[in-house]
Design a binder for these strands. Structure first.
Lengths: 363, 363
DNA sequence: CTGTTAGCGCATTCAG
DNA sequence: CTGAATGCGCTAACAG
């Protein structure tokens, strides 16, 4: 071994002076005149350390502004104290509410949340799930994107707990929390029928989205039970699309007298179009939507909607996940929790209430 | 050393069989018949490996379903490939939009984002910032909560890059991206004055929020320049509070003829109250707000607002952060980027436009 | 109650 | 082009 490599070897062992790097537990131990384990124990608190030692450790920590390296701790130990949250997007109020609720629950458990969006794309969803796994999250909360395309399976996740919500995936071994999409839709369409409507159109996004399809099913059921013809359009992604669609419908001999929109985005765009067309709601055309939102009471007119318990659903999903994490369970057959929805009767359906009236979907 | 401890020692070295744990690079190396470094190099791609070796490694990876441990990689290397995002909350559309934009930029850079909310509480904010530091994020994007109480300083963050946006903190060494809160507010209040309003009330949240205060300043400036008396109320957190306030104002001899609300939450609540009171906007009382929102065009009436470029601001903040991360800079004096806002004239101010008219705040 | 040893999975360093 | 050794910061398991 020549001179150079000796130097190199020595250099390797000579750590840079403390000033230039973050203090480690070792630095604390040295300053406190104890071993690293005493520091570890003093800080984690789940083991006995003499009061004297503890004092000196704490003082050293203070002095050095020591901060434990959570990364090292996660790496060393079995859990990272973080969960992953995979959502279609954060731009929509519904998903934002979900994210808020999940992060709240996580904090209550002392967990961090790593968040990512898929843009409703299954390939992105899969890639992000893999990345979460690489990050060794202790569990995952997922709002899956497209039902059929989704490649999210227990096999992918191994023994990492996963709870899906709002929309399920095909694999029944993953827990899922849902709302009564079909029953709620059916009920609100029945309400429209009670108002005397016979031509009710359903405006949805892609049918490959579980919720959009489930809501369609409720709509169809109500229509068929009443002996009415269904009239559903999917792919209502933009205001322009809806404008075209509506114009065509109005010019046809039999325009719909009511619209049922599949979610907030469609509701908003439809209302925009109707307003720009100068139509009166509900006299020219009635409008009801799935999913309530902040401004639904101050739109013109106030909107009748199916209200889903977004907050409760998200909390239920997150709580279930922490149950799984705590117990170390990865069930063969996952739980399937279905939460009830409400119908909020305002004025866009034709009701005259001056304040909203809430009824249960199974009334 | 007795028999038991010998067994223990042996047990320590005998790793559990591969089936019961995630495969490591070592397993891949063994299966491929190469060294771990060859695997590392083959996978990271930034070093030369013979095509033959690479093939065998890739096959072994496939076979074992090996997934690199990002935690170990982050721990070992200098960067974690994750950034932190600290927000007041995710329930409000504005913040959700910010979160969406930041996560998008992060993904473009191959980064994960760890998200957390403060609930506008400075102590939580500080604690969460510390936690982010413990997690060794490579950088932080923060929407600080209360300006004066904030304890976020360069000193706390050390050499971890931090970009604040929407609201600044006191420490000038942290980068900040803002919008023209004051100029925008001033301009929209001037517009109200041009409509002939003389008694214009400002409804805000806490003045300890930078934006709320900056918007108040713009309001006050416009009023004073026009020789009008200011009438500002802070703490308009709930609909009930606003209802009380408005009733009192209406019963007074000199009720305001127009309202300027400080952000979407206040705007919504005020509109709710006004609607329930049966008042006509803008004839009985005009209403303009800061921050545009999805439904602003279909409220009754469509609302005139200051529109801020939430998306652009967030992207700018995130991009600046990645600049800092890439260059390893932690400047003494941070950048201060101020983005322009627009006034969107709809009908709640008294304008008769059937479609919104957009003007710049400095027109 | 406290210190020593060892190793988590990976990538840097150096030596072939 | 490849591999062996080493240590990142921390804590479980042991031995005092």
């Amino acid at each position: 071994m020549n001179r150079n490599s000796l130097q190199a070897r020595v250099r390797q062992h000579a750590r840079p002076p403390l000033v230039h790097r973050k203090p480690t537990m070792c630095d604390v131990a040295r300053l406190a005149g104890v071993g690293t384990m005493t520091v570890s124990r003093a800080l984690s608190g789940n083991s006995y350390v003499s009061t004297a030692s503890k004092q000196r450790v704490l003082r050293a920590v203070e002095q050095l502004k020591y901060r434990p390296n959570e990364l090292a701790r996660a790496f060393r130990g079995q859990c990272s104290h973080s969960i992953g949250l995979i959502l279609p997007c954060l731009n929509e109020a519904f998903f934002a509410t979900c994210a808020h609720a999940v992060t709240s629950v996580a904090r209550e458990h002392g967990y961090s949340v790593i968040i990512t969006t898929t843009g409703e794309d299954s390939a992105t969803e899969y890639a992000e799930a893999e990345r979460m796994l690489e990050l060794h999250v202790d569990g995952l909360v997922v709002i899956p994107s497209r039902f059929r395309q989704s490649r999210l399976t227990r096999n992918l996740f191994g023994k990492t707990p996963v709870v899906t919500f709002d929309r399920p995936v095909a694999d029944p071994s993953l827990d899922v929390v849902l709302v009564q999409n079909t029953a709620g839709s059916r009920r609100i369409v029945e309400h429209l029928i009670e108002h005397g409507h016979k031509r009710i159109a359903y405006l949805g996004l892609s049918r490959s989205l579980f919720t959009i399809n489930a809501r369609f099913l409720g709509y169809r059921r109500a229509m068929q039970d009443a002996g009415l013809e269904t009239d559903a359009t999917f792919g209502c992604e933009t205001e322009a699309f809806i404008a075209d669609l509506l114009k065509k419908k109005l010019e046809s001999g039999q325009p719909p007298s009511a619209l049922f929109t599949s979610n907030t985005k469609v509701t908003r765009n439809a209302l925009n179009v109707i307003t720009h067309l100068g139509l009166n709601v509900p006299n020219d055309i009635a409008l009801v939507g799935f999913d309530d939102f902040d401004m639904a009471e101050v739109t013109s007119p106030p909107l009748t909607v199916v209200r889903q318990p977004a907050h409760e659903m998200s909390r239920a999903a997150a709580s279930l996940l922490f149950d799984r994490i705590t117990r170390g369970e990865t069930p063969h057959i996952g739980n399937r929790i279905v939460l009830p929805v409400e119908i909020v009767l305002r004025n866009s359906c034709g009701c005259k209430h001056s304040a909203p009236v809430v009824i249960h979907s199974d009334n």
